[in-house]
Design a protein around this nucleic acid. Sequence first.
DNA 1: CAGATTTATCCACAATTTCCCACTACACTA
DNA 2: TAGTGTAGTGGGAAATTGTGGATAAATCTG
Lengths: 144, 144
Amino acid sequence: MLIGEFTHTLDAKKRVSLPAKFRKELGKQAIITRGLDKCLFVYPLYEWSKFAEKLSTLSMNQKDKRDNARFFLAGASEADMDQLGRILIPDYLKKYAELKEKVIICGVYKRLEIWDEERWNKYRDEVEKDADVLAERLGELGAY
Amino acid sequence: MLIGEFTHTLDAKKRVSLPAKFRKELGKQAIITRGLDKCLFVYPLYEWSKFAEKLSTLSMNQKDKRDNARFFLAGASEADMDQLGRILIPDYLKKYAELKEKVIICGVYKRLEIWDEERWNKYRDEVEKDADVLAERLGELGAY
DNA sequence: CAGATTTATCCACAATTTCCCACTACACTA
DNA sequence: TAGTGTAGTGGGAAATTGTGGATAAATCTG
């Protein structure tokens, strides 16, 4: 189970080291793909293959299915770790997620997510704000 | 497994080098043909024969199926790589896909697709906008 | 058949990627 | 607190990749 939040740096050669905690679980090979909300997803190979297999069997005759397959498959890339547990972020994924030097790596159960630090902070602030509102309402309604 | 996205150039002699990553999987010969959404499909020989087999056994008495078969089969052409892993794009395919100098080569699991860079970017932006749909699909396919 | 144009094969350069090792920082142990 | 180990970061050298061009073979044309 991949949980926790880490700040790492993306070096000039577009490498990031994955938190040591996650390495055994990911094994030697992981797949990195476009994720939702402009972050990147990192899956252990076996998790991803299941997903890819399903995607690839979607009928080619329907445009929305083709679109989906392209987004996730073309957006994916094998990320094999070097001996120090770092992976390489392909250019197009770096652009997609707008990664700068500092990135956030967080575990979300079966996958990791990689965020640009700034975008992550903004995102989290918003979620937290919403949570306050939610909590307030709950309080008003006497749900505590 | 052919995945990933690469930007390459189509030179004056209508050659493109295929990403090194894909070469072993494609072998010395591939089939290139018209693809859907105005891109080109590139199949490894083995995958192509399966695909062609399927196409040719489609019922001959439905017009749309016949059209389909013609579209893919008549448009196909052998693409043998030179020693540096480049293939030649026939004129009629170059026109069909409106290829200019910069092209995108992306892997969609069992085939490659070749897109004109501009068209690809526009296309992807649109797909990306439908994040809701993507998220939904992810859910359906059990990627959470 | 000669000349011209296209097509194929080969080579060379430059830039990127890959692989390896070194350094620092922090934590845990003795 | 010194010592040991691990984790994260940075950089150098070698190998590979992508691209453009040169030369040779083939095809076309008048």
